[in-house]
């Protein structure tokens, strides 16, 4: 990518800081400016609390996202491919989809367990509630895009495969799966973003990670730390979506203009 494009992207990010700076200087006193936040940020970079929160949140997203992909991709491909299977499963999933993540939290706290795991150096608690809610964020975009990916494949590709002698499972393997991949990839990029959204909501109430760090900064009155949390979440979300995008593009060399 050429320098001019990077420069434009830099301007995009710098403009947030400028708007923020202006807003802080004319706005309410509870809004800390970029300078105050930056110094709080530098201080936090030396705190193990901060890094624990970063690692915990990242691992939660990674685990939930992987789970969502492992379940959502095959399920979506099957729903899109097999009408009968779709009829048995899709309506139930569509009923669950509009329930907002926050609404699942009481259910999660009441029903889902927390399991303490110790890995020698680091020990942490796996909150099934947080995992589940984060999972939901990634799961539905991946599922729906996988379904749409299959339905968007022109029927003539399957016909061509059958006329070349492919059995049904071979058609699935060589036509349905690769044909749906671009859409699945889009679903994963969107799903990664929503995983972070849901994670933070769940952590604020259920505990642990960057969500809880941000929320306790608010209840504890250290306002600049709220922004440290927000910025960290923004950066991690951006980075993880970019990673998904790059991995996806490397899997799709046949797409026109597939270079990122």
């Amino acid at each position: 990518m050429d320098g001019a494009r990077w420069a434009k992207r830099g301007v995009s990010i710098a403009s947030i800081v400028v708007v923020w700076f202006v807003a802080a200087s004319i706005g309410p006193s509870t809004l800390p400016g970029p300078v105050a936040v930056a110094s709080a940020f530098v201080g936090y970079l030396g705190e193990p609390v901060y890094w624990n929160a970063v690692v915990l949140s990242s691992l939660r997203v990674l685990g939930s996202f992987t789970l969502a992909a492992v379940i959502g991709i095959p399920l979506g491909l099957l729903i899109g491919w097999n009408v009968v299977f779709g009829d048995f499963t899709f309506p139930a999933l569509e009923l669950l989809r509009p329930v907002p993540p926050i609404a699942w939290i009481p259910f999660g706290i009441l029903v889902l367990p927390s399991v303490a795991i110790s890995l020698g150096v680091i020990g942490f608690e796996v909150s099934a509630t947080v995992i589940f809610i984060t999972f939901l964020g990634a799961f539905f975009p991946i599922l729906l895009n996988a379904i749409e990916g299959v339905r968007g494949i022109d029927e003539e590709y399957s016909r061509a495969a059958h006329s070349l002698g492919a059995a049904d499972w071979q058609t699935f393997r060589h036509v349905i799966y690769p044909g749906a991949l671009p859409s699945v990839h889009t679903g994963m990029v969107v799903g990664m973003g929503l995983a972070w959204v849901n994670l933070v909501a769940a952590e604020m109430i259920s505990g642990g990670g960057l969500g809880f760090m941000t929320w306790s900064a608010y209840t504890g009155g250290s306002y600049p730390v709220i922004f440290v949390g927000m910025i960290t979440i923004g950066i991690l979300g951006y980075v993880s979506s970019t990673i998904v995008r790059y991995i996806g593009a490397s899997q799709l060399p046949w797409m026109e203009g597939s270079t990122v």
Partner: peptide
């Protein structure tokens, strides 16, 4: 059936396969 081959109006090479992979698709099955 593979004994009745079809060429479609719009090109229906599998876009996700290379020309070589497309060419050997039928026998490969």
């Amino acid at each position: 059936d593979p004994s009745r081959g079809v060429v479609f109006q719009s090109n229906r090479l599998f876009p996700w396969k290379t020309i070589g992979q497309n060419a050997r698709f039928g026998p490969q099955m």
